[in-house]
Amino acid sequence: MNGKSLTLHIGIFVVMLSATYLLVRFGGLSPDLLRAVPALFFLYLGVMFVFGALKKRRTLK
């Protein structure tokens, strides 16, 4: 993961967290949704990692 993509992922996380917070605070959604954000972000990172690895493998082939 290079510096550019790290910034991108952190940016996505910040946007995801802020949007969820706003939805919970003003949209009346359950605060449990906010608790699920770190797990969802890790899931997202895992999916990105697997896809990245597969892409790299395909390029090497």
């Binding site: 919970v24 605060p31 449990d32 906010l34 608790r35 770190p38």
Partner: peptide
């Protein structure tokens, strides 16, 4: 890092529940 993040976010969610 994940645990730390979960704790921080849990605190925010608890505050929101208390406010409601």
């Amino acid at each position: 890092w994940f645990e730390n993040l979960s704790q921080q976010i849990n605190e925010i969610a608890n505050n929101e529940e208390r406010r409601r």
